[in-house]
């Protein structure tokens, strides 16, 4: 079985979110970059299936120079090789453009399974894995919270629906799966894994390598701004003691739960 995992480098949750002067992008300063959370679960699921049924796991990302790190991290955890797609021309793509590039790079690899996180933590479009499924003509399933290998041509996946409902779905290979958080317990890279990583191949792909004249974009950001609060929030501040005193008073006399 041959699997590909799409991963994205995103700012970690504690990084500052500041709008740049152009009002259509975010400032890059002070950001700590990390692997998108659900992509980590996607990688783990691909590794678990490989360990149980054999095959190869390839990781692929589109990003700036810094994004090479998420490929290396995935290789250290056990992926076999990496594909690093990078070019200044690819900096401001929408999901459609990203999927178009992924399709061009991956189409001749003939993967049985393509994994991705169900959405990115920063732009949260939740589309790339599905658009890619359409471009490559694969089956697909989203919000996958469990997998069960059937044979060399089929897989069963458990899809999470809303409010505690689930649905098992059988898919023919090739299939594109978007993975929900909590499906597994992602591993940490071992020291040995980090040593092995250094010998694993990473192919770098640029715009010139791809026979794509223009990267299509179907939407673009017109303006970014900080949301205006719709609710009047009363903020309590002070020392921990002062905060606790005021909050206890509110719980007792205003909210009346004591």
């Amino acid at each position: 079985m041959k699997s590909c995992v799409l991963i994205k480098q995103v700012p970690d949750g504690d990084s500052p979110v500041v709008i740049a002067d152009d009002q259509v992008s975010l400032k890059g300063e002070g950001i700590t970059w990390t692997t998108n959370e659900t992509d980590g679960y996607a990688l783990e699921e691909a590794l678990l299936l490989k360990e149980a049924h054999g095959g190869e796991v390839v990781v692929c990302t589109i990003g700036k120079d810094s994004a090479l790190q998420v490929v290396k991290d995935a290789l250290a955890k056990g992926a076999d090789r990496g594909i690093f797609i990078t070019d200044p021309k690819f900096d401001n793509l929408d999901s459609f453009g990203k999927a178009a590039i992924f399709a061009q790079v991956l189409k001749d690899e003939n993967f049985d399974l393509i994994f991705s996180g169900l959405q990115s933590d920063n732009s949260s479009n939740a589309q790339t894995g599905l658009i890619l499924a359409e471009f490559l003509g694969t089956s697909h399933a989203t919000m996958v919270i469990g997998t069960e290998w059937i044979d060399e041509s089929r897989i069963k996946v458990n899809r999470e629906l809303e409010a505690g409902w689930f649905r098992w779905t059988e898919l023919d290979f090739p299939a594109s799966l978007t993975i929900q958080s909590g499906i597994n317990k992602p591993r940490y890279a071992s020291l040995r894994g980090i040593m092995l990583m250094k010998k694993k191949p990473i192919a770098t792909v640029t715009a010139e390598d791809l026979a794509m004249d223009e990267i299509p974009a179907l939407s673009h950001i017109k303006k970014l701004y900080v949301p205006r609060k719709t609710k009047e929030t009363v903020f309590i501040s002070g020392s921990p003691e002062e905060i606790v005193t005021q909050l206890t008073d509110k719980l007792e006399n205003e909210i009346k739960v004591l």
Binding site: D94, S95, F96, A99, S124, N125, A126, Q127, L130, I131, A133, E134, F135, H140, A141, T142, M143, R159, E160, L161, E162, P216, L218, S219
Partner: peptide, 23 residues
């Protein structure tokens, strides 16, 4: 923007090459 819509409309947008503005 239901879980079900998330499972099929992105792919519809790719088929028709239409922008899909989500959530």
């Amino acid at each position: 923007h239901t879980y079900q819509v998330r499972d099929w409309v992105p792919r519809l947008s790719a088929r028709l090459k239409l922008p899909f503005l989500v959530d």
